[in-house]
Each structure stands twice: as C-alpha cells, then as structure tokens.
C-alpha cells in the first residue's frame, strides 16, 4: 500500500465520524443512566402501585357490571324499582348523616383546665380552642371514624367548627365546655389515634386540658337536623 496524503485520509475518516455523530443526534436519544438498586426499587414500587390501581379498576368494573345487571332486571320487570330506590335512599341518608347511627366507638370528654391559676396567667393555654377540636376530629377521621358528633351535634363534611369566645359553634349551634366527642369506628384504632404518644390528644394533656377517653360498645349518634341547600354549586354530568 502506498502512503497517500495523510490529510486526505484524516479528512475522509473525519467525515465518517461526522456521519455517525449526526445519525446518533438525529435519533433524539434519551439519556442512558446506569441502573442502580434504588432505581430498581422505585420501579418495583411503581409497578406495584400500577397493579393495585388495575385491581381497583377491575373491582369497579365488576361493581358497574352488577349495577348494569340490576338495571337490566328492572327493565325486564323482574325487580321492583321502588324497592331499589328505597334502598338507595336509605344508603344515601346514612352517608349524608340524615339518620341516627349506633355502633361501637369511643367517647372523648374534653374540658378546660379546672385548676386555679394565679392572677396574670395566660388564660389561652387553659381553654379549649376550635383548633383543638378540629385536630381531634381530623385524627379520628384518619383513624377511620364513620360518624362523629360533638355535644350531640352531628359533624358532617360540611360542618363548621368555629371559635366563639368561650363557646364553639358547630352547624350553627353553640356548644360550651365540656365537649363530648363521640365517634363510631374501630374502638381500638380510634382510642390509639387520640391517646398514643405524640398525637394531638396526648399533647393537650401536657397543657393540663381535661381529656378523658372511654371505649363504648354502643354509641348513639344523632342525625343531622339541618338542611342541605346548594346555592352556587350545580351538578355536572349525569354519572353518580
């Protein structure tokens, strides 16, 4: 092989590299990162979450199919529509708080610090505030409380808990200390949700606020007596 001009050779091969580079760029590659154990684990968690979602969706499909079968039966005249609607009403009433409920749960009694304080002591630390009640209610809901009442006033998703000086207003009605919060649900879980170390209920005890919890086998929670009226919100779509 004769020795041709090296410059020409170099140019030719540079052209070749250029062609490769540009084809590589053209493909708009995603950046390649090495797989780490962490990324593997996150991927696994993602897959699990997706699988759970799929399972849930399948359940919904099953439910909807059952509903469809029911509706078809109604259309055929096998089932009485009135019975089904009555059951629907019952279900909706229970879930909207329009019926009194009974079941196992806990009763919490909260009252202001009964100790006498020297003159000039900050009163605020001894009084139960709306925020305290709200936090306790929220803890109960996290623990799976199905129905909650405060001083026999049913607490709904729309219920306000408002500070009114020495009293607290719930559903537009005033309540005074002591506050008796009743909650239906798994008693052990509910008890733990307000009594375990580090919870808000535990914190209240540090401030010497009266906080007594008792587990009951049968708690009566009254129905909501007010009215539901939407002035601004309008239903959208026909699906439930």
């Amino acid at each position: 092989m004769k020795n041709p001009n090296p410059k020409i050779i170099l140019t030719l091969f540079s052209i070749m590299i250029g062609v490769f580079i540009s084809t590589q760029i053209k493909m708009k590659l995603e950046t390649i990162t090495p797989i780490t154990i962490r990324s593997l684990q996150t991927m696994k968690a993602e897959i699990n979450a997706l699988n759970n979602e799929i399972a849930e969706l399948n359940n919904i499909i099953k439910m909807k199919e059952e509903e469809l079968a029911l509706l078809e039966n109604i259309a055929k005249g096998d089932d009485n529509i009135i019975n089904i609607l009555l059951e629907d009403i019952k279900y909706n009433k229970i879930h909207s708080g329009k019926t009194a409920l009974e079941g196992p749960g806990i009763i919490i009694k909260m009252y202001d610090n009964p100790e006498e304080r020297p003159f000039g002591y900050d009163l605020n630390e001894d009084v139960i505030h709306d925020v305290d009640i709200l936090n306790i209610i929220n803890d109960l809901r996290i623990a799976g409380a199905e129905a909650i009442s405060i001083n026999n006033e049913r607490v709904l998703s729309t219920s306000e808990i408002k500070c009114g000086g020495p009293i607290i207003r719930i559903n537009g009605r005033s309540s005074a200390t002591p506050f008796v919060i009743k909650a239906i649900g798994d008693p052990k879980v509910l008890y733990a949700a307000v009594n375990a170390p580090g919870t808000y209920g535990d914190l209240l005890k540090i401030y010497n606020i009266g906080f007594e919890t008792s587990i009951e086998d049968s708690i009566y929670i009254p129905a909501y007596t007010g009215d539901f009226q939407f002035r601004y919100a309008k239903p959208l779509g026909k699906d439930d």
């Binding site: 170099l10 140019t11 030719l12 091969f13 540079s14 052209i15 070749m16 590299i17 250029g18 062609v19 490769f20 580079i21 540009s22 760029i25």
Partner: peptide, 8 residues
Amino acid sequence: GILIGVVI
C-alpha cells in the same frame, strides 16, 4: 471533515 460528515 466532521462538519461535512454531520451535514451528510
């Protein structure tokens, strides 16, 4: 050369 190659 590389520039020509990229264009090609």
